[in-house]
Computed example of a mutant assay.
Amino acid sequence: MFGAPCWVSLSTRDLPAAEEFYHAVLGWEWRAGKLGDQYRFASVNGVPVAGLSAVEAMGMTAVAWTPFFAVSGADETVSRSQERGGTTAVGPISFPPGRAALLADRDGAVFGIWEGELVSGWEEWRRAAPVFVSLHTRHAFEAAIFYGEVLGWESAESDCCKVDYENDEVVLRSRGDVVARIHSGAVEEAPDPSVRPRWQIHFAVADVATCVSAARAHGGSARYTDEGMQEAVLSDPDGARFFVSTRPAA
């Protein structure tokens, strides 16, 4: 599963408020771990599924959800990104179970990489909190080339990700599951960062309407993205956006 999303993490200005919000909306339980007082782990039925850090604790300066991709070597991955026009925000830095870095692609979309032992097993993580990530960018094919070369998609390694092109989208699969989608569109520079290229996190949930109601009741906002109300985009009280959907990534 090298090259596949292996973790998602949120940076926020208010840890207690974020814990309360995501417990109410997604049912997550929270605990501290080995990364200090400014980082929390969310769990579902005892399985760690996401991280929560104070802004700047992980080198972040903005409130946002960030996907992390599994790599075999953090230093080599950072070098490949820089050689192809990407930038490095943080790292690689060492944590007790591995090494991490925060990068940005050529269009400024931020993503993380992780080398080492996963917080929870990849299959177990995906079963506990099904998730996939999507990138809306200027040119999906060019972005796929960047990420493919940086993260080793379609490499000779036996457990790497596979890339397909379907309906003008780049679709990334790992062990048969859709784990990421990249699609093109008019994305212009603007003061509002929500319209710039960025990775979005999509959580599969049992009931979208319940999540929408809980988000609104706990200081966030929400709107449905389709007429069938099977998907919605939510914002937590600090402004971090994410999607909830009853539909599988496929």
Rank of each mutant, 00 (worst) to 15 (best):
G3N: 05
C6E: 03
C6D: 05
R13Q: 13
P16M: 09
A18K: 00
A24E: 07
G27N: 04
W28S: 10
W28H: 06
A32L: 14
R40K: 11
F41Y: 08
V44C: 06
N45I: 02
A54C: 02
V55P: 01
E56Y: 11
P67E: 08
F68P: 00
F68G: 00
V71W: 03
S72Q: 11
S72L: 15
G73A: 15
D75N: 05
E76L: 11
A89T: 05
G91A: 12
F95G: 02
L102V: 14
D107S: 04
G112S: 01
E115S: 03
E115A: 00
W122E: 08
W122R: 00
E124T: 11
P130H: 03
F132G: 02
V133Y: 00
L135E: 10
R138T: 12
H139E: 14
F141L: 13
F146N: 07
S155Q: 06
D159N: 05
C161W: 08
V163C: 04
V163T: 12
Y165V: 15
R173E: 09
V179F: 03
A180T: 06
G185Y: 14
G185Q: 09
E188L: 14
E189P: 10
P193G: 07
P197Y: 10
A206F: 13
D207M: 13
V212F: 06
V212E: 01
H218I: 07
G220I: 02
G220E: 00
D226V: 06
D226N: 06
S235E: 12
R241I: 05
V244F: 04
A250R: 09
